[in-house]
C-alpha cells in the first residue's frame, strides 16, 4: 500500500540499523577488556554506547520516517486513512527498534558467552526486557509526530527520556542486579590499585 520508493527507503534504513547494531556489538565484544566480567548487562546495558548513541540514532530515524507523512496528512485524514497509516508507521518504528536489538544480541549469542554471571538470571532478564520495553514505548510515543505538531520537539523529548531512563533509573536498577555496578564499590575495588 505504501509507495515503492518510501518502502524501499524504509527497508534500507531497517537493514542499516540492523547492521549498525551488529557492528557496534561486535566492536564491543572484540574490544572487551579480558579482565572485565563477561556478562550481557556488563557488555550492553552498563556502558553508554547502546543507550546514548545507537538508540538516539534509531529514534531520530524513526521520527524522520514518521515526519515524511505529516505533510500529506490532510489528504490522508480526508480519506479516513489516519488509523491505517498510524498502524503502519507504528509497525515501522517498532521494527526499527527490533532490528537494533537483534543486531546487538546476535553477536553475543554467536560468541557463546554466558549471559548472567554477575547476578540472578531472573533480574537480569527483567532488566533487559525493561530496557527493550522502554525503547518500544518511546518509539510508540513518536507517533505523536503524525497526530500533532512540533516533530523536532517530540524527537528531542524521546531522546531525553531515553537518556533519563538510562542514567537515572537503569543505572540504579543495575546495582540491584550486582554490586559490581555500584560506582562507589567500583572506585574502591576496581581502580584502587
Amino acid at each position: 500500500m505504501l509507495p515503492t520508493k518510501t518502502k524501499r527507503h524504509y527497508y534500507y534504513w531497517l537493514i542499516g540499523i540492523f547492521l549498525m547494531g551488529i557492528l557496534a556489538s561486535a566492536n564491543a565484544l572484540l574490544t572487551f577488556d579480558p579482565q572485565d566480567k563477561k556478562d550481557v548487562l556488563n557488555v550492553y546495558l552498563y556502558p553508554h554506547m547502546l543507550s546514548l548513541y545507537l538508540q538516539s540514532f534509531v529514534l531520530i530515524i524513526s521520527g524522520k520516517e514518521i515526519m515524511n507523512f505529516t505533510t500529506v496528512k490532510p489528504y490522508i485524514s480526508l480519506r479516513g486513512g489516519d488509523n491505517d497509516i498510524g498502524a503502519r508507521l507504528w509497525t515501522a518504528v517498532i521494527l526499527n527498534a527490533a532490528a537494533l536489538f537483534l543486531g546487538i544480541f546476535i553477536p553475543y549469542i554467536v560468541v557463546g558467552w554466558s549471559w548472567f554471571t554477575l547476578g540472578s538470571w531472573q533480574l537480569g532478564t527483567a532488566l533487559i526486557v525493561l530496557h527493550i520495553v522502554v525503547m518500544l514505548v518511546l518509539s510508540t510515543l513518536l507517533l505523536g509526530i503524525y497526530y500533532q505538531a512540533h516533530p523536532y520537539l517530540q524527537i528531542l523529548a524521546a531522546i531525553m527520556l531515553n537518556l533519563v531512563f538510562h542514567y537515572m533509573i537503569e543505572n540504579q536498577l543495575l546495582v540491584k542486579y550486582s554490586i559490581y555496578f555500584d560506582q562507589l564499590w567500583r572506585d574502591i575495588h576496581l581502580y584502587s590499585h
Binding site: 515524511n68 505533510t71 489528504y75 480519506r79
Partner: peptide, 18 residues
C-alpha cells in the same frame, strides 16, 4: 503537501488506494 520523495503518479496512487 505530499510524500515529497515520491513522484506525482505514485503520490496519487497512494492516496487513491487508501
Amino acid at each position: 503537501g505530499f510524500l515529497e520523495y515520491e513522484s506525482g503518479l505514485s503520490n496519487l496512487a497512494f492516496l487513491a488506494k487508501l
